[in-house]
C-alpha cells in the first residue's frame, strides 16, 4: 500500500532545509472505533534522512506525532545533493522518497 511522501529541499547560505509531509494515519492505539474496540496503534516509528547516501537525521517517533506528519530539518550541504527520506512504521510498512536540493 503506497503512501505518498511530499519532500522539498532548498539550499541557502550552505544550509539545506528539508521539509516533508508523509501520508500516514498515525493511530495512537488509544482511540475507540464505532464497535467500541480500540483501534490498534499504527504510527511511523522511525525516519532516516540521508543526503548523498550519508545520514543527516534519524528520528524515532511515538504515536504523539500528528496524523499525516510533517518533519523539517537542516544540514550543511549544497545544491544538487540527493536527499532521501525513508520511514518505517510499527506495522512494518515502509516508504521512501527522494529529491534534489534546489
Amino acid at each position: 500500500m503506497a503512501r505518498k511522501i511530499k519532500i522539498k529541499a532548498k539550499e541557502k547560505d550552505g544550509v539545506v532545509t528539508v521539509k516533508s509531509i508523509m501520508n500516514h494515519p498515525m493511530e495512537t492505539g488509544q482511540r475507540k472505533g464505532k464497535d467500541g474496540k480500540k483501534i490498534p496503534a499504527h504510527f511511523i516509528s522511525e525516519i532516516v534522512v540521508t543526503a548523498n547516501d550519508e545520514e543527516v537525521l534519524n528520528a524515532n517517533w511515538g504515536p504523539a506525532v500528528s496524523k499525516n506528519p510533517f518533519i523539517s530539518l537542516a544540514y550543511n550541504g549544497a545544491k544538487g545533493d540527493v536527499v532521501k527520506l525513508t520511514w518505517k512504521d510499527n506495522m512494518g510498512e515502509s516508504e521512501s522518497a527522494e529529491t534534489n536540493v534546489k
Binding site: 528520528a59 524515532n60 517517533w61 506525532v65 523539517s72 530539518l73
Partner: peptide, 20 residues
C-alpha cells in the same frame, strides 16, 4: 515521549514536527 531526533555530524541542530 513524543519524538526523538538523532543528529549526524553535518546536521544543523534544529528539528520540527507537529504533535498531538
Amino acid at each position: 515521549m513524543a519524538a526523538g531526533f538523532k543528529l549526524a555530524a553535518n546536521s544543523v541542530a534544529t528539528a520540527s514536527t507537529r504533535l498531538k
